[in-house]
């Protein structure tokens, strides 16, 4: 299917670009780690409190760096009229959105998988080995929902040439429930290891992801119009 090829070509382009400008990746990892450290210091008095705060801290770190990298993900396209030229080519706009989304999502998930052990170590949470798959699924689905919204709104703010500070203002009310579900699922999987509870939050997450994915893909073409 040529649409799928287009999607993968776009995703490949974005991945390649990101891999080549390693500065962006390093900055993201660094920034999210620093966020975790600061939160750990802020809550550091009480071991019990820290353990309970780990899920929230992890997702705060992911969300903050996620916003920044989503905004930055469209910057390369805006230079030299590259995206402009791309949009004159006969391929579906949704492929552009989904390709970019795929690249953003994969990087966020990787970052999440990286930060998880770091957060566990900093915050002293105990994670049963059985809970790890659940945690990884939570990270994958949580970052997916986040990436859908972030990529969509980042395209909007980039196309409007709005200030970068507008992106969190626009996207956070939409993304808050996604983050909520992700935090709750993480919380359930860590510590007591209530997998059933985690699963119900994961189901909610999956529902969010599906709805927003379908809606944003369908309306994306309006965002890149002029």
């Amino acid at each position: 299917m040529t649409d799928l090829k287009a999607l993968l070509a776009i995703a490949g382009k974005d991945f390649r670009s990101e891999a080549r400008s390693r500065a962006a990746t390093v900055a993201t990892v660094f920034f999210s780690s620093v966020t975790l450290v600061i939160l750990a210091f802020a809550l550091g008095r009480d071991a019990e409190l820290m353990r309970g705060a780990m899920p929230g801290a992890l997702w705060v770190a992911l969300a903050f760096s996620g916003v920044i990298s989503a905004a930055q993900s469209w910057q390369g396209d805006l230079q030299e009229g590259a995206l402009d030229q791309l949009l004159t080519l006969p391929f579906p706009r949704a492929a552009l959105f989904l390709g970019k989304l795929l690249a953003n999502w994969l990087s966020m998930t990787l970052l999440g998988a990286l930060l998880l052990p770091v957060a566990v170590a900093f915050f002293g949470a105990d994670v049963a080995a059985a809970a790890v798959p659940t945690l990884l699924v939570t990270i994958a689905l949580g970052t997916l929902g986040f990436a859908v919204i972030a990529t969509f709104y980042a395209a909007l703010t980039a196309n409007l040439q709005a200030r970068e500070s507008l992106l969190p203002v626009l996207m956070f009310p939409v993304v808050v429930p996604i983050l909520l579900a992700a935090v709750r699922a993480t919380e359930a999987a860590v510590g007591s290891g209530d997998i059933a509870l985690a699963r119900s939050w994961i189901e909610l997450l999956a529902g969010f992801d599906l709805v927003y994915l379908v809606v944003t893909s369908a309306i994306f073409h309006v965002v890149v119009e002029e």
Binding site: P173, V174, Y212, I219
Partner: peptide, 18 residues
């Protein structure tokens, strides 16, 4: 944007209820 807002209403309600 309003379409996204509309989509968010039932979802946000569900999450808040949960």
């Amino acid at each position: 944007i309003l379409i996204v807002v509309l989509a968010s209403l039932p979802l946000n309600y569900l999450a808040a209820e949960w």
